[in-house]
Design a protein around this nucleic acid. Sequence first.
DNA 1: TCCGATAAGTTTGATGCCTGAACTTATCCC
DNA 2: GGGATAAGTTCAGGCATCAAACTTATCGGA
Lengths: 379, 379
Amino acid sequence: MRRHNSALVLGALSTAPGSSRAAVAAATGLTKATVSSLVDRLIGAGLIAEGEVEFRLGPGRRGTALHLSPAGPHGLGVEIGVDHITTWLVDFTGHVRRKWVRPGDNRNSAPARVLAKVATAVRAAATEDVPIGGVGVAVPGLVEAATGTLRVAPNLGWREVDVRDELVRRAALDVPVLVGNEANLAALAELRHGVGGRDFVHISGEIGIGAGIVVHGALFEGVSGFGGELGHLPVDPRGPVCGCGSRGCLERLAGQDRIVRAAGVTTVAELLTALAGNEKAALAAVRTAARWLGVALSAAINLLDLPTVVLGGTYAHLEPWLGPPLAAELSRRVLGAQWSPVRVVASELGADAAVLGAAGSAIRAILADPDPYVASVLG
Amino acid sequence: MRRHNSALVLGALSTAPGSSRAAVAAATGLTKATVSSLVDRLIGAGLIAEGEVEFRLGPGRRGTALHLSPAGPHGLGVEIGVDHITTWLVDFTGHVRRKWVRPGDNRNSAPARVLAKVATAVRAAATEDVPIGGVGVAVPGLVEAATGTLRVAPNLGWREVDVRDELVRRAALDVPVLVGNEANLAALAELRHGVGGRDFVHISGEIGIGAGIVVHGALFEGVSGFGGELGHLPVDPRGPVCGCGSRGCLERLAGQDRIVRAAGVTTVAELLTALAGNEKAALAAVRTAARWLGVALSAAINLLDLPTVVLGGTYAHLEPWLGPPLAAELSRRVLGAQWSPVRVVASELGADAAVLGAAGSAIRAILADPDPYVASVLG
DNA sequence: TCCGATAAGTTTGATGCCTGAACTTATCCC
DNA sequence: GGGATAAGTTCAGGCATCAAACTTATCGGA
């Protein structure tokens, strides 16, 4: 009961920072008295801090602004990439406090070896003089959310790795560890820091194409956590064979590799230069990819009824060329488009969305249920 | 608090009817004392009834079985079809108490006219000597769940009809009225009475192809309630033009009409005869439809990570021929299939799943939050 | 400058629900 | 018949919420 209401209060302050106790009471439907006592407890645990006195015209006492405390529990985000391990320390309000990057070829290393490095990175971050509320780990593969097990990560060449348990053991952690798919966590970052609102599909195209689906402000992970595999939607049933065994997967037709090659260049940077120079092959390559993306996304939107598509990763940079034809394709293929047209926007988060989301997932867990953390602080 | 726990108790009895108070306490994590007092209240409101004394070996007092009361609030389900209005009265335990059917061509009638007939049917049902807990209305079109507004129903030729308000006004109802898409409500019926478990896509193919998505035992309706439009997934981007303005929609390639025509017959009955007689054209037509269905469903499953496909409506009858090639297509195209193969099963509910689900949605609302009903009974 | 009006935040007593423990009831088995 | 076991009830205690009264802070007009 108090547990639930504490989360309500934190939620109100998260969406409307700087609210007074009275404003929080109004927003949550609780009484001022209840909010007062909950806020006292949350301040005691270091989750909330008081700020300036409110500025407002007219009569009446001014409220004291409340906000999530920058000294509250920090989230530690880890991204295990193909050629790097990136670690970000993010404070309770969402600001990035510190960043580490360890380059290295993880593709050709045994999982145990890489996880040992991750554990070292986590232990190093834990020596910072701030409380750690949880660790989030982003992995480029299928993750079983409930257990934190990585089923398969094609680009790492990993299979059946119990990332959570391994990490808890090696880093001797006493805080929650959450493991998630890269694309899903990037979508979480978009939800917290981005422009997608509370309902969207976030597409992140690096080597593969992943999607994170956010509905009513919550990540939709599917039944066992394998949801959002947009890259393997069959968009051209008679199309080229894919590594997954199927045919005509989106990844083959609109993936970064395909676009770059069709444009007659070798890197994304070159592609962008070519596009800026209005080179025909590049423009056509992007337009074709947009069409295929449109087919896959219209499937997703007809099923899930989402108002917004956020282009992340490499696609964010291609948005000026990719966005309009994609939007056109969607307006043609989405059944409900005439009532609520689908918005296509570019993410502003860049390539680091996944680490940011990983750190954010740890913070989000505390926001959603602060009691365990509060209890651990207050004893 | 009590509100939430009352729902917990009802939920436990709904999944395990005949449990004793002690068993409910164990299942919910509440204490025996709490369960006792909650059960007293729910019996007083007529939601729960005591049954026989438990039969069990060994020492100790026997518990008294509890179950949802058949005299509890009934759900009234209405289906507004193209050529009929069907009304079912279903008791709190899920048993059908009475059925009414009013044939009539609703396709060529003004919504007001049809809704007047629906209101008459509802008032007639309300004269039965049982308490009505709510009304559910199934409509073949896009429904905005929050407001109960029908945005468009192509087969009825309706647009922008405020079904809920109209019906409340005309039938002078003082109980909740829920309006939902036919396919979504059919999926709810499958959840309550069917073989799909707690996570599945339910496909109902009549004139169009609709899908209801159930995840973690709850209907997934999307952001505004327009989800599950499987029929308009683009499965063959270069395929035939569809009435919706897109190209290669599933409905065109695997809809009932298409299968029947491709088989060289004119009705579903003839199709089934032809299949039973091993006629080549019929077998081929169904096999082709299965392939296209597989493409659309693999999109759905890659996105949503669902373990089961339930074939409803006409497809249920075709399952012996449709199921195996569909399952094969899915195992090829679904990325997670190697870890958790997708199960394809035929629904056993027949054509009436939507009405049943509509009635069930009213009952479900009370199970999920019995307090308003309890308060209305106990005053 | 003082005082009434307004609004934020706190204190206090009452209420309602859950809990744990003791108690009653019912049944088996020796 | 009595001990053991288990269901269900009673009762005192605790905790969170709430409404209402109260305190604090600020404005604006007399």
